[in-house]
Computed example of a mutant assay.
Amino acid sequence: MVFSSRALRTATVLAAAAVTLTACGATGATTGSKDSAGGSFKATDCPAQPKTAWAKPADGAHTVPTAMGDVKVPADPKRVVVLDTAELDSVLTLGVKPVGATHADVASGFLAYLPKEKVAGIKDVGTIGSPDLEAVAALKPDLILTSKVRDGQRYEQLKKIAPTVMTETTGYPWKQNFATHADALGKIPEGKKAAAAYEKHAAQVTDALGGAEAAAKRTTNVVRFVEGADTRVYGCQSYIGTLLDDIGTAPTDVVKNAKDGLMTEVGPEQITRADADAVFYSAYGSPEKSKESQVTGGALWKNMKAVKSGHTFRVSDQLWLQGIGYTAADKILDELQKDLTK
């Protein structure tokens, strides 16, 4: 039986989606660190991350399977608009400068970890989750990248402006989302190269920690103080959780039992649940309004083993928790290696 290239591409992505759902639902799935002989000696207790499915490179205009159905995209889009931080990270990683992008709710507009020369000249088209559609249309884009969770309710309007490629969501499936972005941009080879470089970098961090066995004996947590909400400890199926899983450090119970695999929320009196061999923390909002100052200045925080051993590290919220992509991940891996080898 002969299948069309479109059918094969669609089947590939649907298969990847099935793997993702299986991984998210299989609470017993684990990934194991392996020694140099290939023998598994310790499961991380995090669900196995789904393998990224890459479409075949296309010649000319082609169809991309998306959360909203098949979308035909141009061969070499020149005027791309992105409506979230993950999409902005993706296009810049792939060497494409968008003509427009939404901004995060930060003073710097576009996230500060992105090189200034790469974001210079990009038109601001509104806030993430509420883009200015007139501003988007005025740029005459030939491709729009976003996600259903952000802009699904605006899909009909967006697709009238330009072909709109939406992934289902953001965060945990970021590697597969990146592959979809690469497909839409006609940058599959570049995408695979970026993914391979990341895997190599993660392995180098593991080696710097003494190898997979040594890394698996160390627990790490990422804590986020949030203005107007309880403090969050991020789970295995969060963006930052995948990075920790990729370098092979072990999750704590609060991570393994995170709601929907994403996060566990704790009040100030429960902050010791976030303790680990190393704790990385950030604040969304001011240190005072997010309760960072109050918690980190309190007795419970000061009594945690990570604090007593000097292994708590304040990190950039924009980089660690808002960026989501290979450019951000590369910088985070550098910081992980520096801090965990102190």
Rank of each mutant, 00 (worst) to 15 (best):
T52F: 06
T52K: 07
A53I: 00
A53R: 09
A53K: 11
A53Q: 13
W54N: 10
W54M: 10
A55K: 02
A55W: 01
A55I: 01
A55V: 02
A55T: 08
A55G: 13
P57S: 06
A58S: 15
D59A: 15
D59N: 14
D59F: 00
G60A: 08
A61W: 13
H62Q: 04
T63C: 03
V64S: 07
V64D: 10
P65D: 08
P65S: 04
T66R: 08
T66P: 11
A67D: 05
G69A: 12
D70V: 04
V71K: 03
K72I: 08
K72H: 00
K72V: 14
V73Q: 06
V73M: 07
P74M: 09
P74R: 07
A75R: 12
P77K: 05
R79A: 10
V80S: 01
V80I: 11
V81K: 00
V81D: 04
V81W: 01
V82S: 00
V82A: 01
D84M: 08
T85H: 02
T85C: 01
A86L: 14
A86G: 15
E87F: 07
E87L: 05
E87K: 12
L88V: 03
D89L: 00
D89P: 05
D89H: 00
S90R: 03
V91K: 05
V91M: 08
V91H: 05
L92V: 10
L94V: 06
G95A: 08
G95S: 08
P98Y: 00
P98K: 07
P98S: 09
V99I: 14
V99F: 12
V99L: 11
A101R: 05
A101Q: 09
T102N: 12
H103D: 10
H103Q: 14
A104I: 01
D105T: 12
V106G: 04
A107E: 15
A107C: 03
S108T: 15
S108I: 02
F110P: 01
F110M: 05
L111N: 05
L111V: 09
L111C: 03
L111S: 04
P115Q: 11
P115D: 14
K116A: 14
K118R: 15
K118Y: 04
K118W: 08
K118N: 11
V119Y: 05
V119T: 15
A120G: 11
G121A: 13
I122Y: 00
I122L: 02
K123N: 12
K123L: 05
D124Y: 06
D124G: 11
V125D: 10
V125C: 12
G126C: 10
G126D: 01
G126Q: 09
T127H: 13
T127A: 14
I128N: 03
I128Y: 02
I128P: 04
G129D: 06
G129R: 05
S130K: 13
S130R: 08
P131H: 05
P131Y: 09
